[in-house]
Design a protein around this nucleic acid. Structure first.
Lengths: 183, 183
DNA sequence: GTATCACTGAAACACTCGTTTCAGTGGCGG
DNA sequence: CCGCCACTGAAACGAGTGTTTCAGTGATAC
């Protein structure tokens, strides 16, 4: 008989926040209940009680991470400008941990299509493609540059690459406008 | 007292190949000795004897994966053509498993900087940047499109994005040539 | 005062993990 | 025949895993 997940409550939200902070520091896929519980001042018993199971906790944490990511999207605009703004957000040092967590979850969902990670990779591709208006190329540049940045920490080089992509986007847009107004 | 790793031998190479095939199917970061040994007709005892430890086996497997990747590089050429050729190789269905393994190892090395994964992410960025002549933008497009492809399986859309990038590269090269020959 | 409620501590269960110990194989060179 | 050598099987060790059982807290509601 497995314990049912508990609906949101004050204590649940509090522990979720603490667990989220811990997971940003130490990774999600290697997380285990006893060390986590001790670090955030709780116990495995309580985590299972509040989240139903470890998988329930992981799902809740992934939901929180996804919400954190999508929080920037509303005011990012459209077209080439949006790409630049998104990169500013991605390359900000304070988001490094969140984005490492993102890569971790992405990889895990590719390897292990079952379990709480299921569909994470497809979901984020869909999310961001929607924001970028279906611009697969821009998404690729952003994600690729992000991978590079997370591995090397080289903000200058990766930022230059994204900026160059944004320039070619705006140049192409200008060309289209010129063709349209002077045929 | 920990068992020393064994030098290459017939049996060692054979088991490494079998383990490599198994890991391509089932992932590397969740690998454990007993199931692996049973699947490839061996025993944990022998794996530890031949590779010194689980970490030693993981290192050997990562080395094999890296060699597999670098095998294409010699005859890929330079400039925009190289990007297209690399993408042909990356998007080939028979390399899907290898590249998923690559993403897995990349993510793991970001989260867990110690252990056998250490430095894997930096190393591959360096490897590929060398092939691409330092073109961070092209590397980003390739890696980003690859992530997209592995998650969605959409070869058409991702290939179109890479082709578009190659076109802007060749266009830029033509412009430079025109400027140089007719000033 | 008592019943109900969300929450918790301690301990155990039934695993799996990497690794070690000990005791062998079978083959090949001397 | 003997000793060496690469390799192997069975079992155990100690640690760590998610989860469960049972027995409580303390606060709040009636």
């Amino acid at each position: 008989m497995t314990e049912p997940a508990q609906p949101p409550s004050a204590r649940r939200e509090e522990l979720l926040g603490l667990a989220y902070a811990h997971v940003l520091r130490h990774g999600l896929s290697g997380m285990s209940l006893r060390p986590l519980a001790e670090a955030i001042g709780s116990s495995p018993r309580v985590l299972i009680y509040l989240f139903g199971s470890k998988d329930g906790l992981v799902r809740a944490l992934l939901g929180r991470a996804r919400a954190d990511e999508l929080a920037v999207l509303p005011d990012v605009g459209h077209g080439p400008v949006a790409v630049g703004r998104i990169w500013d957000w991605l390359s900000a040092p304070e988001h490094r941990a969140l984005l490492t967590l993102w890569v971790e979850s992405y990889a895990r969902s590719l390897v292990e299509p079952d379990g709480p990670w299921a569909g994470f990779a497809e979901a984020t591709v869909r999310d961001w493609l929607a924001v970028l208006g279906g611009a697969t190329g821009s998404l690729a540049v952003l994600r690729g540059a992000l991978l590079d940045l997370l591995a090397t920490g080289d903000v200058e080089r990766t930022t230059a690459a994204v900026r160059a992509h944004v320039r070619t986007l705006t140049a192409a847009a200008d060309d289209r406008e010129a063709d349209g107004s002077r045929p």
